[in-house]
C-alpha cells in the first residue's frame, strides 16, 4: 500500500525534471507522509480511488454543478475554413518612407518605415560616424515657398529613440506649411536623409483678420465681383453680433452623443453597496390541449401538450388570480381563485 502511494507521489515529482533521479525509488519523506495519511490506505476499491484522485486536484469540483451545464456546441459555419485568410494583416511593407498628417493647428503626426537596406546604405555613407549618430526627425516650415531642402523659413530636429514608428510633432505656429525628414545625424553634423515626407498645411485657430469681400453668383460661377471693403469699420460692426462672443462649444460636439458611443455607460453609484430584489409569481398548469384557459379574463396560450405557464411581477399587497378553463365543446368549465399576498420589510 505504501508503495502504491509513493508511486503516485513520484508521478508528481516527474513533472520536475531536476528530480527525475528519484523516480521509482521512494524517498523517506514520501513514505513518511503517506504513512501519516490513513485515509489513503483504505483506497482499495477502484471507485474510491477515483474519488481520491479527484479530491487530490484542487479547484476541480467532483461534479459539474447543474447551473453550469454546458450546452451542445453549435456546428461552425462552413465559412470558418476561410478564417485563416483573415490573418494576412501586414505589419510593415518593406519600403522606406515617411508620411505626414496634420491633426490640428499645432500638432502633426508622422509615421514611417525604415528598411534594413536603408540603414546599410547610411552605414556606408556615414562610415565610422554611424555608430555615434542618432535618428532624427527634421521639421521644416515651408509656407509659401517651393522647398528644395535648403530654403525653409526655419527648421528644428527631434531626436528619436530606437524602434519608434510614429511621432506627434508639436509645431509653434498655426496656418503654416510643413515638411518632415527622417534622417540620421552624426555628431560631426553629417546628415543622411532616409526619406522626406509630403507637405501639409495646418489650419487656423482663430477668426481671420482678413475682411476683404468677394461675392460669387452660382449662376455664373466663374464671374466674381469683388467689393473692396471700403466701409471696413462698418462691416466689422455689423458682423460682431453675428459671430457672437462665443467660440466653439466643446460639449456640443458629436463625440458625446453618437450612435456608437454607447451602449455601456455606468452611472455613478450613490453608495458602495447595493441590493435589488424582485418577486415574480409563476402560474402554471395543464389541461386538454384544445381547451381555452384564461387568467383574469385574458386568454393564455397553451403549449402543444396542453400545459401553460405565465408569470407576473409581484408587488406588495393582495392579488387576485382567477384561472378558468373551458373545454373545447364549451360544456365543461373549471375555475380556481387564487389569493396571493406579498409583504416586504426592509431592515437596514
Amino acid at each position: 500500500m505504501v508503495k502504491k502511494n509513493s508511486e503516485s507521489k513520484n508521478k508528481k515529482v516527474k513533472a520536475l525534471p531536476a528530480k527525475k533521479v528519484n523516480a521509482g525509488k521512494p524517498s523517506k519523506k514520501t513514505v513518511k507522509k503517506a504513512a501519516s495519511r490513513p485515509v489513503r490506505k483504505k483506497a482499495k476499491t477502484p471507485a474510491l480511488k477515483k474519488i481520491l484522485k479527484k479530491t487530490l486536484l484542487p479547484g476541480v469540483p467532483a461534479e459539474i454543478p447543474v447551473l453550469e451545464r454546458k450546452e451542445e456546441k453549435k456546428p461552425l459555419h462552413p465559412s470558418h475554413i476561410y478564417d485563416k485568410y483573415d490573418t494576412m494583416f501586414q505589419d510593415s511593407y518593406g519600403e522606406t518612407g515617411i508620411v505626414l498628417l496634420p491633426r490640428d493647428p499645432y500638432w502633426l503626426f508622422a509615421y514611417w518605415e525604415v528598411t534594413p537596406a536603408s540603414i546599410e546604405q547610411a552605414k556606408k555613407v556615414l562610415g565610422n560616424d554611424f555608430n555615434s549618430s542618432k535618428t532624427i526627425l527634421r521639421v521644416y516650415e515651408i509656407t509659401n515657398i517651393i522647398f528644395n531642402g535648403r530654403n525653409a523659413h526655419s527648421s528644428f530636429d527631434i531626436i528619436l529613440e530606437n524602434l519608434l514608428r510614429s511621432w506627434y510633432i508639436n509645431v509653434p505656429l498655426s496656418e503654416k506649411n510643413w515638411i518632415v525628414d527622417i534622417g540620421i545625424l552624426a555628431p560631426s553634423g553629417k546628415y543622411f536623409l532616409l526619406s522626406r515626407s509630403n507637405a501639409v498645411a495646418t489650419p487656423a485657430d482663430s477668426i481671420s483678420n482678413t475682411d476683404y469681400e468677394e461675392w460669387m453668383d452660382s449662376a455664373e460661377s466663374w464671374k466674381m465681383y469683388t467689393t473692396r471693403a471700403g466701409a471696413n469699420s462698418k462691416n466689422r460692426a455689423g458682423t460682431c453680433g453675428i459671430y457672437g462672443a462665443e467660440d466653439r462649444a466643446f460639449e456640443a460636439s458629436s463625440a458625446g452623443v453618437s450612435s456608437l458611443a454607447g451602449p455601456v455607460r455606468f452611472e455613478n453609484k450613490a453608495s458602495a453597496f447595493w441590493l435589488k430584489a424582485g418577486t415574480e409569481i409563476i402560474v402554471y398548469g395543464a389541461t386538454e390541449p384544445d381547451a381555452r384557459v384564461t387568467i383574469n379574463g385574458n386568454p393564455v396560450r397553451l403549449n402543444a401538450d396542453g400545459s401553460f405557464s405565465t408569470r407576473f411581477a409581484l408587488t406588495d399587497g393582495l392579488h387576485l388570480l382567477d384561472i378558468s378553463g373551458r373545454s373545447a365543446s364549451g360544456n365543461y368549465k373549471k375555475t380556481f381563485k387564487l389569493r396571493v399576498t406579498q409583504e416586504t420589510y426592509k431592515e437596514e
Binding site: 498628417l101 500638432w107 487656423a204 452660382s218 460636439s253
Partner: peptide, 27 residues
Amino acid sequence: LKEYPTNQVCAPCESSWGYKGTHEVWL
C-alpha cells in the same frame, strides 16, 4: 441656394465636428 444664388467667396477652415473640432478623435 435657389433663393440666394449670390454668396460670398471664402476658403473654409479645416475642421470636424468631433471633440475640439479637429481631427484629434480620429488620430
